[in-house]
Simulated assay, not measured.
Amino acid sequence: MNVLHEVNHVVCVTGTPPLLSGRMSLVNLLYNVYNRYDAFGQHIRLWESGQVQSKSFHVDLLFLFREGVVYIIDHRNRTCQKNPLHPLHIPHNASLQSQVVLGGSSAPGEGLLVNTWTGDVPETGGECKYLATVTEFGCVPVSMLYYSARTDWIVTTYFNAVKGIEDLEQLIPPPFCADAETEDEKLDFFSAFF
């Protein structure tokens, strides 16, 4: 399958600095996506467009973790699908896998101290598993491995993080989403994306 992607991504994981933007790579068996993310108030905005087997597609997803909903936005038809949303964070029942220095530790500035957490996603009854690495200081996301039967293994790597967000308006649903009814199926970031 040949998949071309152009993606912008807005993300905040609980505990990260309130204003953070950067780049991320998301890879599984079907996708290899490089995109940009911004973090603010536990919101994620994902825009994706591309071509699969000569057919164009466009996806616009707005994740509102504090409100517990995700909007799947169709600008062409000016419609929204609204689904309940599982949280995106390192759960309280996570197990500390390890604390290591990425890079070197022989001299100051050679490495980065990180914590790796592992466990099952509680809201899925243990069906989904994760391995998340964040910096010891600032809780900035470094990488995440995620598994579910629906998505298979997904590897997400975060890099080039800086403080600041260009357009906070991107984190508000468009006016035509105001009357969207909430669907029954509860999604998480990865199941909504795939």
Results as ranks from 00 to 15, higher is better:
V70E: 03
Y71Q: 02
I72Y: 01
I73S: 02
I73E: 01
D74M: 00
R76H: 14
C80P: 00
C80T: 00
K82M: 03
N83Q: 06
N83I: 01
L85H: 07
L88P: 04
L88C: 09
H89V: 07
H89N: 13
I90L: 10
H92I: 12
H92S: 14
N93P: 03
A94F: 11
S98Q: 12
G103D: 07
G103T: 03
G104I: 06
G104D: 04
E110G: 04
G111Q: 03
L112W: 00
V114W: 02
N115E: 09
N115Y: 07
T118M: 11
T118N: 04
E123C: 08
G125A: 04
G126N: 03
E127M: 06
C128G: 02
V134R: 07
T135W: 01
E136H: 06
F137P: 00
F137W: 04
V140C: 03
P141W: 01
V142W: 09
L145T: 07
L145V: 08
Y147M: 09
S148W: 09
R150V: 13
R150Y: 13
T151A: 14
D152W: 13
I154E: 11
I154F: 10
T156V: 15
T157Y: 14
N160K: 15
A161Y: 03
V162W: 10
K163I: 05
K163Y: 10
G164T: 10
D167V: 15
D167G: 12
E169Q: 15
P173Q: 06
P174H: 11
P175V: 08
P175N: 04
P175K: 08
P175S: 10
F176K: 03
C177Y: 02
A180N: 01
A180I: 01
E181N: 02
T182G: 00
T182Q: 05
D184K: 08
K186L: 09
L187D: 02
L187Y: 04
D188M: 05
D188Q: 06
F189N: 01
